[in-house]
């Protein structure tokens, strides 16, 4: 019995040890399989050990708030500009605007005060069935509200944060009244109740339940890898106006970080060309660093003009966007 108790005590200690001095602790809303390869490479380059805990962005923020100034975490990685903005707004981050980050990351993709930084780009855009539609029929997010798409549109649920950010960007660019009309038009054009996943939207388009939808580009990337002959095609929205809506995964150094130096080093490293290529290969996310060339299969999707609005605005307008979508009956 003593042995068993000793064994568990040992486990307990192991699970909470802080013996390694040269380390950095990361809380991450990016899933393990998408960050582990990055961290391993970082450790190889720098000798700094990375400990990490994954979770949902929203809940990790609550955990960080509760852990308070004694938290072990140094860096918080999350997806969606709204989450980053909110974490900044809640006072979780400290400003770190080093020259490396400034030169690697375009201005609209990081916080004005240096609280957080984008690390990879995810484009939320239009996907369509090329057997049924030619690209000339498509133009913008707003156009999908047009009556010609009646019963031909599939969308993911408005509860997904990517849609909240997209609509927030439309509110920012077009004003609330127009945004309301667009969302109303979408809802009227839906051919089915909104799906819970981007992949379900693609499945529905291929099966013919609808002809067009809105998704994050990397889901399409993964899908095409498996189904090279699919009639599904990406279309970059709003190329003649604001540019396509971009969202980010990003990170910020926590205010109560105990290893600030290492945290900044990791943040800088993640924005470097080497790390950006890993992002690219792992998940087909576009590099934050525009000097980096994307892979051949992604070049096929064509170049795009991105919406250059500062992503802080997305965070600021997210609540308004939620209210707007609920009011228009977007489930």
């Amino acid at each position: 019995m003593k042995k068993i108790i000793g064994f568990f005590l040992l486990l307990w200690l192991l699970s909470s040890n802080t013996i390694f001095a040269n380390e950095v602790t990361v809380y991450s809303a990016r899933k393990e399989h998408l960050i582990k390869p990055l961290f391993e490479e970082f450790s190889k380059d720098t000798g700094i050990k990375v400990k990490y805990l994954t979770g949902k962005g929203e809940t990790l923020i609550e955990r960080l708030k509760t852990e308070g100034k004694n938290t072990k975490a140094d860096l918080f990685i999350t997806v969606d500009a709204g989450n980053l903005w909110y974490a900044g707004n809640q006072g979780l981050f400290q400003p770190v605007a080093t020259n490396i980050i400034k030169s690697n990351v375009a201005k609209h993709l990081r916080d004005e005060n240096g609280l957080w930084t984008g690390l990879s780009l995810r484009i939320r855009t239009i996907v369509y069935n090329s057997d049924k539609i030619t690209p000339s029929e498509l133009s913008s997010y707003g156009d999908l509200a047009n009556k010609k798409w009646k019963n031909r549109l599939c969308l993911r649920t408005s509860k997904k944060i990517y849609n909240k950010s997209l609509v927030a960007s439309i509110i920012y660019n077009k004003g609330e009244e127009k945004a309301q009309k667009i969302v109303k038009g979408w809802v009227d054009n839906l051919s089915s109740i909104p799906k819970s996943k981007d992949s379900h939207v693609m499945d529905a388009i291929i099966a013919g339940q609808c002809d067009v939808g809105i998704i994050n580009h990397y889901y399409y990337g993964a899908f095409v890898d498996k189904n090279p002959n699919t009639p599904l095609k990406l279309f970059w929205a709003n190329q003649n106006s604001t540019g396509v809506h971009v969202n980010i995964s990003g990170a910020g150094v926590l205010k109560h970080s105990k290893n600030k130096k290492n945290a900044i080093r990791l943040l800088e490293w993640l924005s470097s060309a080497k790390a950006q290529n890993i992002y690219l290969n792992l998940n087909k996310e576009y590099p934050i660093n525009q000097n980096i060339e994307v892979s051949k299969d992604m070049q096929k999707w064509g170049a795009f003009i991105q919406d250059k609005m500062n992503l802080s605005n997305v965070g600021r307008l997210q609540l308004e966007s939620v209210l707007l979508m609920q009011k228009q009956g977007y489930k």
Binding site: S15, S16, L53, G55, E62
Partner: peptide, 8 residues
């Protein structure tokens, strides 16, 4: 997902 410690 929320409460585990690192490595669990």
């Amino acid at each position: 997902y929320i409460l585990r410690s690192i490595g669990w």
